[in-house]
Design a protein around this nucleic acid. Structure first.
Lengths: 70, 70
DNA sequence: TGTCTAAGTCAAGGTAACTTGACAATTCTA
DNA sequence: TAGAATTGTCAAGTTACCTTGACTTAGACA
């Protein structure tokens, strides 16, 4: 799943390690998510979205077309 | 993490098995998520949100206070 | 009554999401 | 130039997510 983690982290001038500290995960996990080796868990996705002040859907993109309720 | 899966499923009149079919997971997994035994993966959370036409944050709630970007 | 469906749970197993520790390559900078 | 910081990656281990198969309980209904 594509994500904007690297871009958002760069906007704040944080290292992978510094971001990991704030998210309470290791720098290797930050790197793995940024490089697409695996997706974050849902609780971690919530922490990421909250840290950057954006909805999960604005940060992560699973490539499918989202359809609003009618 | 709390979620509204059971409520949303009831609104559509679907069984756990029928919902599992649409999400491409087993009925036991639907039950485990509904009863809070574990959280869905992020890709599965996307499929759930898309199926019900609501944002992930409107269906799942990790209990923390969300703060919009300023 | 017996049968069907739905829901809840358990066991056992596979894969994904994390961990710590290590090493190499690059870049910044004193 | 040497040292520090950053990033990328690997190995090995733990836990979470998800599977199939099975069993139980409860409700609907012929």
């Amino acid at each position: 799943m594509h994500n904007r983690l690297k871009e958002l982290r760069a906007q704040h001038g944080w290292s992978q390690a510094a971001l990991g500290d704030q998210l309470d995960i290791s720098r290797q996990s930050v790197n793995a998510i940024e490089t697409g080796r695996y997706d974050p868990s849902l609780p971690l996705a919530f922490r990421i979205a909250r840290l950057f002040g954006e909805p999960i859907e604005a940060i992560f993109d699973d490539g499918e077309i989202s359809q609003a309720a009618e």
